[in-house]
Design a protein around this nucleic acid. Sequence first.
DNA 1: CCGATACGTTTAAACGTTTAACCTGCTATA
DNA 2: TATAGCAGGTTAAACGTTTAAACGTATCGG
Lengths: 333, 333
Amino acid sequence: MKKKTSLKDIAVQVGVSTALVSYVLNNKKEGRISKEITAKIKQAAIDLNYQPNHIARSLQAQKTMTIGLIVADIANPFSSQIARIIEDEAQKAGYSVIFGSSDEKASKTEKLIKLFLNRQVDGFIIAFPENTQTQAQYLKQIGIPFVMIDRYFPEITSNCVSINNYSAAASAINHLLENGRRRIGIVTYATALHHLNERKRGAIDLLGDNAAVGEVRIDHVSEDVSEAIAGFLALPEPVDAVFFTTNLLTVAGLKYLNSLNVKVPDQVAVVGFDETDAFDLFYAPVSYVKQPMTDLGREAVNLLLKTIDDSSLQKSVTLETELVVRQSSVLFR
Amino acid sequence: MKKKTSLKDIAVQVGVSTALVSYVLNNKKEGRISKEITAKIKQAAIDLNYQPNHIARSLQAQKTMTIGLIVADIANPFSSQIARIIEDEAQKAGYSVIFGSSDEKASKTEKLIKLFLNRQVDGFIIAFPENTQTQAQYLKQIGIPFVMIDRYFPEITSNCVSINNYSAAASAINHLLENGRRRIGIVTYATALHHLNERKRGAIDLLGDNAAVGEVRIDHVSEDVSEAIAGFLALPEPVDAVFFTTNLLTVAGLKYLNSLNVKVPDQVAVVGFDETDAFDLFYAPVSYVKQPMTDLGREAVNLLLKTIDDSSLQKSVTLETELVVRQSSVLFR
DNA sequence: CCGATACGTTTAAACGTTTAACCTGCTATA
DNA sequence: TATAGCAGGTTAAACGTTTAAACGTATCGG
C-alpha cells in the first residue's frame, strides 16, 4: 500500500513548517497567513491528495469522534433498525459508529465495553443484558458518557432512552379486552430484564386471574414458546388471545399457531410487539405495539452528544408507543 | 471523565522506564527482565487498572485492527445478517468493525470510503452500489486491501465473494418449469448492478418468450412492484408464476398479491430470494433461493485478512445457493 | 532613534505506544 | 589482566497531528 501523504509531505513540498500547513488546512489563524502561501499549501494538499490522519488527530485531541454501540444482536431487526438511525444521526454530528453484539451475555458485554474503551470511544449507547449492573456502574464510575437504550436498570440513575413499557402492554391488553377477549395468555422471557417485566406487569395488572403467563428461556425460544402456547390451549378455560412481549417471540408464536392450525383471530387473537414484515404477510395481519424507532435512536444520540459536551448531564427520556390494530386481534364478520 | 492510566503512570509508580513496562506487558524480551520487576509492573498494571490505548498503538504500528464495512443499508436483514457474521469472524482475529450504509448511492459510498480511509481502517468489505467502479478502482490504485461482497464488477478484477447468481436464478426457474408453470414473471430492479442482471439473465435464458419482466425503480419499490405484477396478470396469457430477485421485492410482491386476493400457489406460484421470517408466516410458506450467509461473511473476512497480510493476493470466491422449496411454488392436492 | 506593536512564520512539546540501539556492571574465560 | 559476553536495564526516536509560545523583521508613533 502506498504511503499516505502527511502534513510533513506538504510542508516539505511548499517549503514551510508543518504547523503552518496545519493552520491553513484547518482554517485557523485566518487572515494571519499570507494569501500566497495559503494558496500554495491548499494546492499542494490537493495535488498530493492529502487526507488527514484521524488516528493521529484523535491521539492528540484525546477525542476519537467515535461512538460504541452495543446491541443484543445486530442481526435482529430491532437492533439493526436502531443501528441505522444511530448511524445517520451520529454521522450528522461527525461521529462514526463501531458496533458489537452482546448476545444477551454479560460476559460479552464486558468484553465489548473493555474493547471499545481501549479504542477510546467518546461514548456508548448500550442495550444492557441482564446482570450487567456492574458494567453500568463501572461506566458511571470512570465517568465515560453513555446512554442506556431500550433496557435500563431502575436502581441505576443515568442517561436512558426507552419506551413506556407498562402502558404499552396495558394498551395492548385493553384493546383485547375491549374486543371481547377474556382469558389472555402472555408470552415473555424468563428474565430479570426490567423493561420486559414491565411489559408483563402492564399486562397482568389488568387481567388478574384471567392471565396465563408463559416464560421462555432465551436460548430455547421456539421450544418454550410452543410449550407455553400448548399450555394455554390445554387450560380448563383455554385462552382466547395471546400477547407477545417481543418480535422474536411473536414470530415464533405465530409459526406454532400455524402448525397447530389454530385460526387467528377466530380462535385466538394475537397482539405482537415491534414491527416486522412478517406481520404484514400473515393471513391475518398482526396487530402490534409499535415503538417509535426513529425517536428512540435520535434521542439516544442527542442525549449522548450532550453528555459528551457536559458530562454532568443526567436525563431519562421515556417515549410512548402506538398500538397498531389489524385483523389478528379483531373479529370481522 | 477521569484520566486513564498510561504506561508512564505505571513506570513512575514502579520507578522504571516506560519501555520496560511496555516490554513486560507485551511479554517481549521474555527472560531478559528480572522476575522481581516483572511482578511489580504486572501488579501495578492491575492496581491502576491499566488499559492499553489502542489509538496510540495504532498510530505507532500504522495498523488499526479495524475493518470498514459498507453495506446498502444496515437495517436490511440481508445486510445485518452479513454484518453479524463479519463481526464475529473479525473479532476472532482481533479486529473490530466500523460500518456505514450507502443507501445504494455512489456519493454516500464515496464519502464513507474517504471517511474510513481517514480513520485508517486496515481494509474494507464493501457491497458496491451501481456506478461505483471509480471507487473500486481508486481503492485498487492506492493499494488498500478490500473485498467486494455480494456485488461485483466483472470488468474489475479484485477480491470478491459472491454467489453464483446465474445458476441460482436458473434453479428457481427450472423448479417452476418442472412444476408445470409456463408463463413466468420476473421482478427485478432496473439497475446496472451486475449480480442482479445475472439473476435476470439466469431466469430469462431458460424462458425465452415465456418470460415477462418487470423492472422496479429502487426508490419506488412498492408502486413499481405492484405495477409489474398487475401487468403480468393483465397479459393476454397471464403469468402462472413470479420469481423475485431480492427479499425486499419478494415481500412487496407478496403484499400486493395478498391485496389482490390472488391465491398462491393455485393461481400464481412464487419463488423469492433470500430468507426472512415473513416467508415462513405467509399462508403458503414461500419457496426461496437461500444464500449461504455464514460462508459469505466468513469468506469475506478471511479473504480480507489474507490480503492484509499479503497485499498481492487476488481471489474470487463464488458460492452456490440452495433452493428451498415449500408450498408457494408447488401445487398440493 | 528607541520602544512598541503587528505580522507571518517556526519551534517544540505533547498525545501514548513500540522498539532498535545503546549503556552499565558483572562474570567467566583465555 | 584484558576482554568478551550477558543480564537487565534505559534512551530516544518515531508514528501524524495540534497549538501555545517564541522568534525575527518591518513599521510606526513619539
